[in-house]
Design a protein around this nucleic acid. Structure first.
Lengths: 146, 146
DNA sequence: TTAAACCCTAAACTACGGTTTATAGCAAGC
DNA sequence: GCTTGCTATAAACCGTAGTTTAGGGTTTAA
């Protein structure tokens, strides 16, 4: 016999607070979850697959409303495959763009860390401060350094 | 003579709403910006460097409060280099972790797109639906498909 | 000199993604 | 039979990161 799972077991597995799972359910992200006679949520193995997808979309920044739309399409069977594909392709573009921005910004952070880490850091930063101070003075603007 | 810039010019350059720049100033992210007699913000070339750094930290998910702390350290001169380095190193770890999670999730999204895109998509998805239906029936749980 | 386009502040408002609180039912262990 | 601990709902609340609005003052160009 296959096992069923409580909300706590699911929460522990996905490292999500129970309150978040209930919130997702309220927002229509978990239409596949049943309830028992007492009104308790009862999860099956296959629900874990859906929830993994939800986490994946959430982790990549898809808004709750859009995840809800996607899941709803999933519940409508094979006839929504094209719509789902289009949603994911659009979302993928966003994610790739996010990745690029992240990579570029990380690049900059690394450059700064290297500068701070170099043996000439004092000299380099001093020169930068002097540059700013000179520019501000030339423009009759206040010196921003304390 | 060097040029100064208005808030609108800065907003256009960084593609940020003017309201966001004012918000950042209010939150203490722009202590290096001067004001003229009329109370208008006056930006210099070197301010663009600081703002670029702010955008970089924001784009990588650093909270406004932490960016404020970092900028404050910058304004205290060379004696805060070690603290700044440590902040950025810590932040870098977060960013790398974010990158990994993003890459993994993108992987999953790609797998799904491929599945939706394959010529057997109907068959594959139908099999998945059958699997879920069977499991739910075995457990006496309601069928989630419409 | 007057309209258009710009700038300011303060404070209220918004969206998002939950979290907390308050109420209560049920079930197992002591 | 009492406590502990799980579950439920609904509604209030929270932090973050802005955005909008109200009520001004300033600058520029015709």
């Amino acid at each position: 016999m296959e096992k069923t799972y409580s909300i706590k077991e699911v929460a522990d597995y996905f490292k999500l607070p129970i309150s978040t799972i209930r919130y997702y359910d309220k927002k229509g992200l978990l239409p596949f979850v049943s309830k028992n006679e007492a009104g308790y949520r009862v999860f099956s193995e296959s629900d874990f697959g859906f929830i993994k997808t939800i986490c994946c979309l959430k982790n990549t920044g898809m808004p709750i409303k859009d995840i809800q739309t996607y899941i709803e399409l999933c519940m409508q069977g094979t006839r929504t495959i094209d719509q789902r594909k289009e949603m994911l392709q659009q979302h993928k573009q966003n994610v790739v763009q996010k990745q690029q921005l992240l990579a570029e910004s990380l690049q900059e952070i690394n450059t700064k860390i290297e500068r701070y880490d170099s043996k000439d850091s004092q000299t380099i930063i001093s020169a930068q401060i002097k540059f700013v101070k000179d520019e501000k003075r030339d423009l009759h603007l206040k010196d921003p350094f304390i």
